[in-house]
């Protein structure tokens, strides 16, 4: 096996899930390839971290908190809702401002020359797709 093929098998070598023959080949390669040695070491370190934290004992208050939550009628998680709501409000405010500015702009233009019809009117129609976007996001 070449270096590249070995590299792809290090995860499985580490787990000891390879056939004896492959295992031996890789062990031999490792004895003289620094890069593969380092990769193996890093994989080992990283995967060992995965089982680092685990609860090992029941939390005696878990049931109490659960019951408390079940007795309260479903409450919206306020922290999670206010941001989209505020964002929506700000966006609508910005659109309204834009509408006002846009209207003034088109009126001024219109009084000057005959190009009014070519300017896209900045009216309520523009708001609709954005409002819908927010609704589907909720």
């Amino acid at each position: 096996m070449k270096h590249r093929a070995i590299k792809e098998k290090l995860m499985f070598y580490m787990e000891d899930s390879l056939l004896a023959k492959e295992k031996q080949e890789i062990a031999e390669h490792l004895s003289h390839c620094d890069e593969c040695q380092q990769l193996l070491e890093s994989l080992r370190k990283d995967l060992a971290l995965l089982n680092f934290e685990k609860y090992t004992e029941n939390d005696p208050y878990f049931y109490t908190r659960l019951k408390a939550r079940m007795e309260v009628p479903a409450q919206p998680a306020s922290r999670r809702l206010w941001q989209p709501a505020l964002f929506g409000a700000l966006l609508l405010l910005a659109i309204s401002l834009g509408t006002v500015v846009g209207k003034q702009f088109s009126v001024e233009q219109g009084s000057d020359d005959g190009l009014t019809s070519e300017l896209v009117p900045f009216d309520g129609l523009q708001e609709e797709p954005i409002e819908q976007f927010l609704l589907t996001f909720e």
Binding site: Y55, T56, D59
Partner: peptide, 11 residues
């Protein structure tokens, strides 16, 4: 049931 399975679920 909660006592029996809370470790499983929490983990």
């Amino acid at each position: 049931l909660v006592d029996r399975y809370q470790l499983l679920v929490r983990n």
